[in-house]
């Protein structure tokens, strides 16, 4: 059984691997802590050890154990940070240059609105096409970088595409630009992860990942329907 949702973006496996990597450190720390906790409980039951040793723990020879534990924790911490930062920088700090599609995804109560660039291929121009329907689909081509401008009209929403391991808050008054590249054709959930009012849980749209040809056909139909 797969514990994660379907994996369909260029960085979703990075994020899943990050989970397992942190799990290694956390797992070791957890098991080690449990042993340190439980061992004396068995060995030093008062029926076996009627009188405790007098150890204040303030001497260097005792304190060193705590310091060793903290150093090991610090090493794990920085190992985790070092590795996870690569994924963070890749997903968040830069948008790739070669972008096939630049769309706006706008949260409103209670659905996601999509704005596609018009035939001029430029967003935020007069010929943009707005799709504002309940449960509508955002169509994107496979294996191409997609740049999204995330915005909100009324309250805070959060654009969540579990299959892409992608999430970013949509905030009134701001435009946040992020990117993803889908690697598997299919129809994926695009839900809202930030409570946004009564029908928050009805906020459910889809991202349809399709081949370049299908995507272009979709676009020309969209332009014609205008």
């Amino acid at each position: 059984m797969e514990i994660f949702p379907e994996s369909a973006s260029s960085y979703s496996s990075d994020i899943d691997n990050l989970f397992w990597l942190i799990m290694v450190f956390v797992g070791i720390a957890f098991v080690a802590s449990l042993i340190i906790l439980i061992y004396p409980l068995i060995k030093n039951h008062h029926s076996k050890v009627p009188r405790a040793e007098y150890i204040t723990g303030n001497q260097k020879k005792h304190l060193k154990w705590i310091v060793i534990g903290m150093v090991l924790m610090a090493i794990s911490d920085f190992a985790i940070l070092f590795i996870e930062h690569g994924t963070w920088a890749k997903t968040q700090e830069h948008v790739p240059d070669d972008v096939e599609l630049h769309v706006s995804v706008i949260g409103k109560q209670w659905n996601w609105v999509f704005i596609y660039p018009g035939p001029d291929k430029k967003l935020n121009t007069a010929d943009d096409v707005v799709v504002d329907q309940l449960n509508s689909e955002l169509h994107i081509p496979i294996n191409k970088n997609i740049k999204v401008d995330i915005k909100a009209r009324d309250v805070v929403h959060s654009m969540f595409v579990p299959a892409f391991r992608f999430k970013y808050d949509a905030i009134p008054g701001r435009t946040v630009t992020r990117w993803f590249r889908a690697t598997k054709e299919g129809k994926y959930d695009l839900s809202c992860a930030e409570i946004c009012g009564v029908l928050h849980s009805n906020m459910r749209n889809f991202i349809v990942v399709e081949s370049q040809e299908q995507y272009e056909e979709f676009l020309s139909n969209l332009y014609q329907s205008q």
Binding site: P40, H45, V49, R51, I55, W65, G69, M73, D77, L81
Partner: peptide, 25 residues
């Protein structure tokens, strides 16, 4: 993430208290 460092120290000290003790459940 580095908050885990002082807390590791605190909880290890708690556990170290048990070592060599005469434990009553």
């Amino acid at each position: 993430i580095i908050i885990s460092i002082p807390f590791a120290g605190i909880f290890l000290s708690y556990m170290a208290t048990l070592w060599g003790g005469s434990i009553r459940f």
